[in-house]
Write a protein that binds this DNA or RNA. Structure first.
Length: 205
DNA sequence: CGGAAGATCCACT
DNA sequence: GTGGATCTTCCGA
């Protein structure tokens, strides 16, 4: 495996769509319980900011929950949803933008047995079982609100250099689970590695 | 202060 | 394909 060198904060402080597609193929590295868990990012979604009705930053409203979302790029934004799941974002752009990239799916590279334990899977994982969705991903990596706001270039949760996708390997489509957001629900802000077995449903290809 | 909704997942038919 | 789990968050009154 290539060296797990953290991406610099400048990586995140760009247009959120560029950050979202450029995160595909990078490694997500989680230190937990004296172990190292490594995954390759295969699916992301960009959330713009005030102008995006699907975003928690819609209308520029700031709440206790979205505090870390309005920081400058390079930090984690973790939130709790549906009474039982967490979702992980990488904050993008400049301070006060409220733009972020939701990490939707990953392929396990190292530490799959620990992820399986964390997911409480009884049988051999099938494609997508370990980290093939934003809630599953956080469960596999034991990510909760304790990691909300942490820097992604150091510490126990990092995103590192990896094997970025070329544009012909990337497919874009509308985001998942945002039907309530009107026109924004059709924006092609979901990015995935075309044909990869860990990409969540519905498949964007 | 009450109620509705939610960037999901799973079991079941 | 459908519905239930489960509870924080947010908005309106």
């Amino acid at each position: 495996m290539s060296r797990l060198r953290p991406l610099p904060r400048s990586f995140y402080r760009r247009d959120v769509k560029a950050v979202a597609s450029d995160l595909l193929g990078r490694f997500l590295v989680r230190r937990w319980d004296d172990r190292r868990l490594v995954l390759k990012i295969v699916e992301t979604e960009a959330y713009l900011g005030a102008e995006d009705r699907a975003s928690h930053a819609c209308g520029g409203r700031r709440t206790a929950r979205t505090r870390s979302l309005f920081r400058a790029g390079g930090y984690a934004y973790v939130y709790f949803i549906y009474g039982m799941y967490y979702c992980l974002n990488a904050v993008a752009g400049s301070s006060d933008d409220g733009s972020a990239v939701l990490i939707r799916a990953c392929e396990a590279i190292e530490g799959a047995s620990t992820m399986r334990d964390n997911r409480r899977l009884q049988s051999e994982p099938r494609p997508g079982d370990l980290a093939g969705g934003p809630g599953k991903l956080c469960q596999a990596l034991a990510i909760d609100l304790g990691l909300n706001g942490v820097a992604l270039d150091r510490g126990e949760l990092r995103i590192t250099t990896g094997e970025p996708m070329t544009s012909d390997e990337i497919v874009a489509g509308p985001r998942v689970g945002v039907a309530y957001s009107g026109e924004a629900s059709g924006w092609p802000l979901r990015f995935a590695w075309r044909g990869h077995p860990e990409v969540s449903r519905p498949h964007p290809w």
